[in-house]
């Protein structure tokens, strides 16, 4: 192992630790968010160093990209006074939404708690590090995966694990996306995507760029989807690109959600999960196990499932953003027909 690479790895790790520390300790939420996004990008580098290009793609697209957009959009909300029935004290100073440090230090004994927790965390870190350096050589499941790759219908081992060997996990994971959207609906108190505030136009130059980029994004998504069969790529990365295209178009002022009927929203949210489910159940009919794809058709089925999943993932990711950014998580802004509930239960 050459010392230069070692130095690089060590430097990157130190950078990651510093960025994480800064993200947690920064005074302003805005700084926190920026440090966190930088941390995400640093992680993408780490994944590449660890020979995990699939994870790097996923992290850059989903972890840093999508979550970064959501975090920045949330800052907009937290940095101005609440608009609801807020009888509570209003924090009107924009950009200084982080009052927690001040609040905590006012408590007697808060300092002691803080010290204690820090000491506990340091102790945990010591224990973890000792355990980690003592881990043996393992062996992993690399050989098993390589041995079964033939019958999986794809050539890229990660895709084979995701869509075939451990397809059940991936299916549930698409379900988690769907579930998170349902959760966001519950938090927002209203179901659907139409209505709400449309974004302001970001100016001619950006609109122009976004219009130009969108076809390229869709094309890249299709390319990644197809590539997943033999190289890093696949449904999640492709899906997030589709979602990103939607988010950008929305930012450019396109009223994308205005024409979406509730039925289409429902279909978009469940398409990927449902397709997975249908093929999984279909496998039961000839006497197979759930999600057992016949070897001959496995490649085609996987491509079909991945396409549906990518569309659904893209749609859901877009829905996260469109729902949150247009109504700031408050039902009081629209839909007077469904007032904020006062259920006495």
């Amino acid at each position: 192992m050459n010392p230069l690479e070692h130095a690089l790895d060590t430097l990157l790790c130190l950078l990651l630790l510093v960025l994480a520390w800064k993200a947690l300790r920064a005074e302003h939420l805005y700084q926190s968010a920026i440090f966190f996004i930088a941390f995400g990008l640093g992680m993408a580098l780490a994944w590449v160093r660890l020979a995990a290009p699939d994870v790097a793609l996923a992290e850059a697209a989903i972890g840093a990209g999508l979550l970064g957009v959501l975090l920045l959009d949330s800052l907009r909300v937290f940095s101005r006074p609440p608009n609801g029935s807020g009888k509570a004290r209003q924090n009107t100073d924009p950009g200084d939404a982080e009052t927690a440090t001040a609040t905590t230090s006012r408590h007697p004994g808060a300092r002691a708690t803080r010290l204690l927790a820090t000491a506990a965390a340091a102790g945990l870190a010591a224990v973890l590090v000792t355990a980690i350096v003592r881990i043996g050589d393992g062996g992993g499941l690399t050989e098993e995966a390589a041995g079964q790759l033939e019958g999986s219908g794809v050539e890229h081992p990660v895709t084979a694990v995701l869509l075939n060997f451990r397809g059940y996990d991936t299916w549930l994971e698409v379900g988690v996306l769907f579930l998170a959207m349902l959760g966001i609906y519950c938090a927002g108190g209203w179901v659907g995507l139409t209505g709400g505030r449309e974004p302001d136009s970001p100016g001619p130059l950006l609109s122009w760029l976004i219009r130009g980029l969108t076809p390229l994004l869709i094309l890249t998504a299709a390319y990644l989807l197809w590539l997943g069969k033999e190289a890093p790529g696949g449904a999640f990365q492709a899906g997030v690109l589709i979602g990103a295209a939607g988010i950008l178009l929305r930012l450019a002022g396109y009223p994308l959600t205005a024409h979406l009927s509730p039925g289409m929203v429902k279909l978009g949210l469940t398409l990927g999960f449902g397709t997975f489910l249908v093929f999984g159940i279909a496998a039961l009919i000839p006497g197979g196990a759930f999600l057992e794809y016949p070897e001959y058709w496995a490649g085609e089925i996987i491509l079909l499932v991945e396409t549906a999943a990518a569309i659904s993932i893209g749609f859901t990711v877009f829905a996260f953003f469109a729902y949150l950014s247009s109504r700031d998580g408050s039902p009081s802004e629209e839909h007077n027909s469904k007032p904020s509930t006062t259920n006495s239960d």
């Binding site: 994971e173 379900g175 988690v176 959760g183 938090a187 039902p331 904020s340």
Partner: peptide, 27 residues
């Protein structure tokens, strides 16, 4: 690992149900 995924599905569904009423204390 699948247990982790099911735990997360369970957790998200449980929290979503818990905030179904949309009232601030529940949120």
């Amino acid at each position: 690992f699948n247990l982790y995924v099911t735990i997360e599905v369970m957790g998200l569904a449980a929290v979503a149900l818990a905030v179904l009423s949309g009232r601030p204390p529940a949120l």
